[in-house]
Amino acid sequence: MATRYDYGGDEFIFVDFDIEMSLEVNFRVLSVCQEIERQRIDGVIEVCPANASYLVHYDPEAVEPRRLVELLREIEHKAEHIESLSSRLVDIPVLYDDPWTKECAKRFADRHQDPSVSNLEYLMAINGYSSKDEFIAAHSGTPYWVSMIGFVPGTAWGFQMVARERAIQAPKYVRPRTDTPERAVSHGGVFLAIYPVRGPGGYQLLGMTPVPIYDPTATLVDLRERYILALPGDRWKLRPIDMDEFLAIRAAVEAGTYRYRTVAQQFEPARYFRDPPGYLKRLQIEAAGC
């Protein structure tokens, strides 16, 4: 579809590339957003990439709205396809089928499609898996591309890097919950999301990570500068863990000594699209050697 430019009031411009989600369109969003940042346009406060669209926050006293739209259109036409971008492989330990999110799901059972089973069992069934292990293997087997950051600080939308027909899909709750535990690992639509803080939510609850993805006190050294873990273009690899490891990591987090396992890599979209599983495998082997 043709890119759509629209005014979000007098301080934002909304640019929509597509109504469908795909990695191709997200790479396009990132490439255009990087180019806007490189140009350092007077009056642009910041650029916020999203899945298939982006927002520009600007000061209309410094750049006239119609002029800014013209500049953004020019950049869109000039922006090259990204050949290579920085992309970290980030290890996210997950205790699937944990007691806390199951308890939460029970409390809000009246808002769920099928209160007779856990959220995990529900997603397992509607996505055609016959056992929990098989479902967990699929959910955690392939990394998630961080295609958007927002909602509240640190929430990352993760889009699993699998063929469309293999994407795990989940309806949102019939009515949203008013409470969700902090660090709950969840799935809604085709997206993974981890809750940075306790609060309302409508995604299906699958497990719990022991590591914070947002830290307002900036206690952990890796979160000191930006307060959040996610960067656009991260690949988050979920790793199933047991309760013992969960508690050990929690203890390290609470002692302030936990270090995230991340490997900085260059990601080349063209090579990915030629052979997605092969390229991901190669990056993972490369990361393991670091």
Binding site: G8, G9, E11, F12, F14, D16, D18, I19, E20, M21, S22, C48, A50, N51, A52, S53, Y54, L55, H57, M148, G150, W157, F159, R164, P171, K172, G188, G189, V190, F191
Partner: peptide, 21 residues
């Protein structure tokens, strides 16, 4: 529903929300 949007008619593939929207 477009791929990734969700089944409800008010759902879209997640976008940024301007302040005031």
């Amino acid at each position: 529903p477009p791929f990734g949007a969700g089944s409800d008619a008010s759902n879209v593939v997640d976008v940024g929300y301007p302040v005031g929207s």
